[in-house]
Structure formats: structure tokens, C-alpha cells
Design a binder for these strands. Structure first.
Length: 270
DNA sequence: CGCGACTCCTGCCGGC
DNA sequence: TGCCGGCAGGAGTCGC
């Protein structure tokens, strides 16, 4: 569900309510997330003042002077700001209560998300081997080209591999490949450098546009505070099987690649 | 090591 | 209308 744009939208949404606030308590109703929530959080987070909120890949990092809460939204997670006395709904698994009288509330029906505490998040086992940020300087066509030499995997799962580049999920992988005119099943190691220049640019463009639109809202996912994102109407291929390609008019194709639904135009993407 | 399959979990949607 | 199979935006782990 949430890819980089949705996580970034969530980060920006909660930031003004959380930064500068003192954490007055942590309420964990269900520790059974992707990994059991350690009591480190209960022990270390209360009493701390939130200094900043960062995003690394699809992780939200709630930074304090003594450590960082690391939140992942998984496939169905979302965050909101609620008043302390707001009753928790069935999948509201934890709250971080703030001195303002509000709480940061985490909801995640499928429980694929996670919550960790770390004094050195960059070195945390979940984060330490992640590839570069797609919107950062280190990410380029040259970089993708050099990392892909000798690799037979299809380009779509290649760019969805967080060890290569983070934040590119199933929606934006299809969208970026369409924008770059590259067939999603093409072997990553057999794509020329100049085509990777186009792909890296397309990834940056599609992610920036999606952030600007507040992310993509599909099915039950909403961004910060249950607000819908408006990028769905800008999707070129994702979820548009048999609908006309917006470029050539031929029907959009759907295949399964790496166990994931994949959309592309047979005419425009080679 | 690279790669593909499998897995976790709940909700929703489409088809019969 | 109701039930059921299939699928969902992630990503770690396992086996080959």
C-alpha cells in the first residue's frame, strides 16, 4: 500500500503536530505486528521530546535526543493525529501520546507494519543495507546501469529491490517504466545506460508528482488523517488493464512479474 | 550471491 | 442476496 509518496505524505502530515512535543506515554494495544513490538519502546520513548521526523525509504523516523522510533506502515498501515480521549478502533494498534493532548495513532489492519526503537537508526538491521533514496543525488541512470550489469532479473523487480533503490513500490514501478518506455520484463543487465538515464529520471518525476498530489489512494488506503491522495487519476497504466493507453490508445496489458501485478503498454514499452 | 517462491494478515470485491 | 476464491500499495526468509 504505502509507497514512498504515501509515507512522505504521512510524514508531512504528522510533522507539525509532533515535532517539539514531549511524549507523555505510549499505549500499545497489540504487539503482534510484523515483528513483536519490543518493550524498549515503552521503556525509552516516554519523557522524550520529539526533535524531528525523517523518512528513510518507507520508514518513518521519530527522532528524540536519546533514540528514534522506527515506524513502517507495511501494506495497510496509516497514521493520524487524534485527541487523547478518542476511542480506539479495532485495528488501532498503538498510540504515542503527546503533551499537547493529542496522540499519534497507528492503524494497520493486516499488521505487516512494524515499530522499533533504536539509538542508531541508520545502523538498525532493517535500514543498514538499504540502497539510495530515489530523490537523492546518489541515484542516477549511471548508478542503475552500473548496479544492473550481469543481472538477469527483470527490470521491474530490479527497481523494486530496496537494496538497489528504496521507495519504488508496485504502483510507481509500473508507472516509471511506462514513462521511460521500457518493457517491465526486460532483463536488467541488458538495458543500455541511456535508457537507465530515462528510467532514473522517470522514477524521480513520478515520485515527485505523486508526493505533490498527496499520494495515491486505492481501496482502503488513506494517507495522513484518512485523507485521500489524488495521484490515482494521474496513473497511466497501473490498474488500467484493457483500458486505452493514454499515449497510443492500445489496451493496457497486465502480467504477473515476481508475484506482483504488472501493467504496461505492449506498443509503447520495449 | 542471485533469483524466484512463499509467507505473514485482514478486508474487500467480483463472480457465481 | 450470500458465499467464496482471489487479490491487495511490502519485504524478510528460505531453498535452489
Amino acid at each position: 500500500m504505502p509507497e514512498l509518496p504515501e509515507v512522505e505524505t504521512s510524514r508531512r502530515g504528522i510533522e507539525p503536530y509532533v515535532v517539539g512535543e514531549r511524549v507523555t506515554g505510549v499505549v500499545i494495544r497489540d504487539r503482534r505486528l510484523r515483528w513483536p513490538v519490543s518493550t524498549d519502546i515503552d521503556d525509552c520513548l516516554p519523557g522524550q521530546t520529539v526533535r524531528s521526523i525523517d523518512r528513510r525509504a518507507k520508514y518513518l523516523l521519530i527522532n528524540t535526543d536519546s533514540g528514534t522510533a522506527i515506524i513502517h506502515l507495511g501494506m495497510s498501515g496509516s497514521v493520524s493525529i487524534v485527541e487523547h480521549d478518542t476511542p480506539a478502533a479495532v485495528h488501532d494498534h498503538f498510540d504515542i501520546a503527546l503533551g499537547s493532548g493529542r496522540s499519534l495513532r497507528y492503524r494497520d489492519p493486516r499488521r505487516f507494519g512494524s515499530l522499533h526503537w533504536s539509538i542508531d537508526p541508520a545502523a538498525h538491521w532493517l535500514l543498514k543495507d538499504l540502497g539510495p533514496e530515489p530523490l537523492g543525488e546518489a541515484f542516477s541512470g549511471e548508478y542503475l546501469w552500473s548496479r544492473s550489469r550481469g543481472r538477469r532479473v527483470s527490470v521491474k523487480p530490479f527497481i523494486m529491490n530496496a537494496a538497489i533503490v528504496v521507495g519504488v513500490g508496485n504502483i510507481y514501478a509500473s508507472e516509471a517504466l511506462f514513462m521511460a518506455g521500457i518493457h517491465p520484463r526486460r532483463a536488467a543487465g541488458r538495458i543500455a545506460k541511456r535508457r537507465y538515464d530515462d528510467l532514473a529520471a522517470a522514477i524521480k518525476t513520478v515520485l515527485k508528482k505523486a508526493i505533490k498530489a498527496g499520494g495515491t489512494t486505492l481501496r482502503d488506503f488513506y494517507g495522513f488523517n484518512g485523507e485521500a491522495g489524488y495521484f490515482q487519476q494521474q496513473l497511466e497504466v497501473y490498474g488500467r488493464e484493457d483500458e486505452p493507453c493514454r499515449s497510443c490508445g492500445r489496451p493496457v496489458s497486465a502480467i504477473v512479474l515476481g508475484q506482483r501485478a504488472t501493467y504496461y503498454c505492449k506498443n509503447c514499452q520495449t
